[in-house]
Design a protein around this nucleic acid. Structure first.
Length: 955
DNA sequence: TCGACGCGC
DNA sequence: TGGGATGCGCGTCGAT
């Protein structure tokens, strides 16, 4: 153990360090002005100048971006020394001489965008930033020329754009920055996008072409095929020269026939470093904006930004963004065996400081917290483990004690001297909050919550569980550390049972002796780091980096805040309900016994089956999966409808039993004595579609459908002076189906805000919406939902209580009226059977391994899941995007409101009464725009929100 | 530990 | 051919 702190091993030496510079180095930021205007225009709501209605949305977005860039970057180690905004000069460029159809299909700029072009140039000048443009060239050419020049002169370039056409320029000392999504684009992101490194992007683009710019490429070859071909043959010239060797006949012929067109396409996409520079680099040096900026903002009536500018640089807004760890060199895989005896137990401050120094040097540290209980909201810290390289890990105990009741007097007690908890926290805090040191954890949400209660706001953080989930959601049920370790490291970690015992003899972790605790805890950190090194590189390689970064990685922090906030529940109300239910259940039980002629357990489906079908001789209908007679609600309903008394009594008893057992009793138990509120736990890696799950207690299945059930919802309340606000997406899954399946009638109905179920009914049955019978609409509604779930005629017949033939006819009519649905279903089915997974419009992969299963039944289950997953998954993605943006949006508006719960298409907030209207406004706006800017939906998302004293009335 | 059941979206 | 026959979860209870 003594050699643990010896000089850094090889893996540490490979982490790149900031180079030492002798003279001032040029660091040039090039903003793609033209690209930015269009994105800002489409991403932002249309904004007009109050005084005269001049459209200024894109200008406002542009100004905010430029200001943020100037302020943020100034705090950074990599602040720009030089800065310029680059514009397209004219419609015609030298590329039109090469190919007269280049960009020929571009629609003209929207009417309300045109007047904003000159304003953006004016804005740039007001900021004191040079505008670059050159007749006959595109902005991209100028960006390329400046980037090459500065890079070759030993400087560094950051291109502020997300245009894929610029990705060919990425490389050493040239990166891209997408300020709208706040992500850096380096070689890894380019690899994810194009499947090849930046220097081969041009070859891939030449093959697949670009419909937006009207670059022809090779017909029938998309980005995946192109990347595959380039990978195989090395480069485009080799590929074209050896095209005759390609096995697939179609591809071979295409490449031979279109070789010239492909070469032309390469000329069109290739950016030329030799473009003349309209201004020398010296003239691009960064300067502070002067009085013209204030004048310009005043003229535009951008009051918020004007105020910020007046407050000057270094305003409260300015905070360094966390670094993008993906810009680091990928860690070297490590296969050394895991030796739990080699870990160090840290019990003095110099040793602790030495570990902290090593973590800083490495730039990455895996960590894990040990606590004395399971609930992160209340558990006390026992210790923290760190791993700085594979096999190099330690455990820092802070809360271990002797077991109070154990041991005889003469038993020698272990020396438990530890560094005081506050001391450890104080020293770890700067490390764990250091933006330049990446922290890695398994199920980071837990550790985040524990440390947040000790005043540490851990960041930046990566989560191996979520990396695994992004890669393999649906492939495995659990993304727990033990399973991942066994599979990827071929190592079975020490089980918690082994160190703490099990059942009655299980002890709290704080009573585990330090040697055993060190082996167990440090191993977790070690395994986490090794898993990270194994799994992380796969994200980019498999095209899932963006999914992880945008849909997974930001979530733990958001959820921790919700879980710690908790929701207030009125225990008195629940106890009253519980008593009421008890009394009525006792009455129903007596009645049931009387009707059966003997006592029996009403909670036992088996006994109910015996009584109904054997003793009373009723005709048993369906059976369960195991062959037992079904006694579920629909069965009992059928029997009750036949006039039997007992089934009705059983149904009533079951309803009360369910409400009492699952809700009223359990919820009272779940109220935290410390906060008086209920703190659920949200699971991120539970549902393969990306939905969250809620446990301990589950607050996503609180009753709503029946009056008795709603009484439980009424017990969810706000603190005095506050209200609960519920905001839910209206029909989000059907809307997404309309978009994904491209169903014109559905899209039109949503765009026009029609009653979607009535429209469906009208379309199917040929009856007008006006005066439509309720039953007709109800049937259409059931079909709409059935379609989303991949229903069959049998299922629909069951649902609607109609003959199977009739249900079959409905489905047939539906497919005839909406042919897009059939196409969509077939597409998903083929996809899942070919690849074993389907994908949401946001890129999330949902694996459905049963699609390749043996039995027909297994595969048809998979088919239905494949139909549902892209819809349910896209809805889950939209909701995650909204949740990630919500805390910032509320804070920016100066509101105290907090998000408390998520129920798949609903968010619940608590806010001071006076804030209610504003919270509703912001919540709706964030939720309705959540898909943007990455996905432009062809249907609007609509959110309905209400504030009230309890959840029932708010919903 | 498993199956049946029932609550939610 | 014909059986099986709506997606995703979690918690409770009884039976084993």
């Amino acid at each position: 153990m003594s050699d643990v702190l010896d000089p850094a091993p090889e893996t540490l030496a490979e982490i790149p360090r900031e180079p030492t510079q002798d003279g001032p180095k040029v660091r040039l930021y090039l903003v793609d002005g033209s690209g930015y205007i269009f994105r800002a225009y489409h991403a932002l709501p249309p904004l007009t100048r109050k005084s005269d209605g001049l459209p200024v949305g894109a200008v406002a977005g542009f100004c905010n971006m430029l200001w943020k860039l100037l302020v943020d970057m100034r705090k950074e180690a990599d602040a720009p020394t030089h800065l310029a905004v680059v514009f397209d000069h004219s419609e015609k460029t030298f590329r039109n001489d090469l190919y007269d159809q280049y960009k020929a299909h571009r629609p003209p700029a929207p009417e309300d965008l045109v007047p904003q072009f000159p304003l953006v140039r004016e804005a740039t000048k007001a900021f004191g930033v040079p505008c670059l443009e050159l007749p006959g060239y595109e902005a991209d050419d100028l960006i390329a020329a400046y980037a090459c020049k500065v890079r070759d002169g030993g400087g560094e370039v950051v291109i502020v754009s997300s245009d894929k056409d610029l990705m060919q320029l990425v490389g050493p000392n040239v990166s891209m920055l997408d300020t709208m999504k706040n992500v850096k684009i380096g070689p890894e992101q380019v690899l994810e996008k194009f499947g090849v490194p930046p220097e081969k992007v041009v070859d891939v683009q030449a093959l697949c072409g670009d419909s937006v710019d009207n670059v022809p490429g090779a017909p029938g070859i998309g980005i995946k095929t192109a990347a595959q071909l380039i990978q195989e043959y090395g480069d485009l010239d080799t590929l074209l020269a050896r095209a005759g060797e390609i096995k697939q006949p179609k591809r071979r012929e295409t490449l031979i026939a279109f070789a010239d067109q492909i070469r032309l396409s390469r000329e069109l996409v290739k950016l030329d470093c030799d473009t003349p520079l309209p201004a020398p680099i010296d003239e691009l040096a960064v300067e502070d904006p002067g009085p013209p900026l204030a004048e310009f903002l005043e003229k535009m009536e951008f009051r918020t930004l004007a105020r910020r500018v007046a407050e000057g640089f270094g305003g409260a807004e300015a905070r360094a963004p966390s670094p993008a760890p993906e810009m680091r060199a990928p860690p070297k895989p490590q296969h050394g065996p895991i030796d739990v005896e080699a870990y160090q137990c840290v019990r003095d401050i110099p040793t602790l400081e030495a570990w902290i120094a090593r973590a800083r040097e490495a730039g990455i540290v895996a960590f894990d917290t040990e606590t004395d209980a399971l609930s992160s909201a209340s558990a006390a810290l026992c210790g923290v483990s760190l791993a700085v390289a594979p096999g190099e890990a330690c455990y820092i105990p802070v809360g271990h004690e002797h077991d109070g009741d154990g041991g005889l007097e003469f038993e020698r007690k272990e020396d438990l001297a530890q560094i005081p908890c506050e001391e450890v926290i104080a020293r770890l805090k700067p490390l764990l909050e250091d933006p330049s040191v990446l922290k890695v954890a398994q199920n980071a949400k837990y550790d985040l919550a524990v440390l947040l209660r000790h005043g540490i706001d851990v960041a930046p953080i990566d989560d191996t569980m979520l990396v695994s989930f992004a890669l393999e959601g649906g492939l495995r049920k659990s993304h727990g550390m033990d399973e991942l370790s066994k599979q990827w490291l071929e190592h079975e970690p020490i089980s918690f049972k082994k160190v703490a015992g099990t059942g009655k003899t299980q002890k709290s972790f704080k009573h585990v002796d330090l040697a055993a605790a060190t082996c167990y805890a440090a191993e977790d950190a070690d395994v986490t780091l090794r898993l990270y090194e194994h799994l992380r590189p796969r994200l980019a390689a498999e095209g899932l980096l963006t999914v992880y970064e945008t849909l997974e990685r930001p979530m733990p922090k958001v959820l921790v805040e919700m879980e710690l906030a908790g929701v207030k529940v009125d225990p008195e109300q629940l106890r009253l309900l519980s008593n009421d239910f008890s009394v009525r259940m006792a009455e129903l039980e007596a009645e049931a016994h009387r009707l059966a002629g003997r006592p029996f357990n009403l909670g036992s489906p088996k006994q109910i089956g015996d009584i109904l079908f054997k003793e009373m001789g009723l005709a048993s209908g369906r059976t369960t999966a195991t062959g037992a007679a079904s006694t579920d609600a629909s069965m009992l309903e059928d029997l009750a409808a036949q006039g039997h008394e007992l089934p009705r009594v059983l149904l009533d008893w079951r309803q009360l039993s369910k409400l009492k057992g699952t809700y009223t009793d359990a919820l009272v138990e779940a109220i935290s004595p410390a906060t008086g509120r209920v703190h659920t736990s949200f699971q991120l890696a539970a549902a393969s579609t990306g939905r969250l799950a809620s446990t301990d207690p589950n607050l996503q299945n609180i009753p709503i459908r029946t009056e008795e059930g709603r009484k439980i919802r009424r017990a969810f309340i706000a603190e005095p002076g506050n209200v609960l606000i519920s905001a839910d997406y209206s029909q989000i899954e059907l809307r997404l189906l309309a978009h994904i399946g491209d169903i014109p009638q559905l899209k039109k109905a949503f765009q026009e805000g029609l009653d979607i179920h009535a429209m469906t009914a009208s379309e199917m049955f040929g009856v007008p919406v006006e005066g439509m019978p309720a039953e007709t609409r109800r049937r259409a509604k059931a079909i709409n939902f059935g379609i989303v779930y991949g229903i069959s005629a049998f299922g629909l017949a069951n649902q609607l209580n109609i003959p199977r033939e009739e249900a079959g006819a409905y489905i047939k009519t539906y497919f005839e009226r909406f042919p897009g649905i059939r196409t969509y279903m077939d597409r998903q089915q083929r996809q899942v059977r070919a690849e074993g997974f389907v994908t949401t419009i946001f890129g999330r992969k949902v694996h459905i391994p049963a699609a390749r299963g043996k039995s027909q039944a297994e595969r048809s289950f998979a088919d239905r899941a494949a139909i549902n997953a892209p819809i349910q998954g896209a809805a889950a993605d939209v909701m995650r995007r909204a949740m990630i943006r919500m805390p910032g949006a509320l804070k920016a508006a100066g509101l105290k409101a907090r998000m408390l719960l998520q129920v798949h298409d609903e968010l619940v907030f608590e806010a001071p009464e006076a804030e209610a209207d504003e919270v509703i406004r912001i919540a709706c706006q964030v939720m309705e725009k959540a898909a943007e800017p990455v996905v432009s939906l062809s249907v609007p998302l609509v959110v309905e929100a209400r504030a009230a004293a309890n959840w029932d009335e708010a919903h």
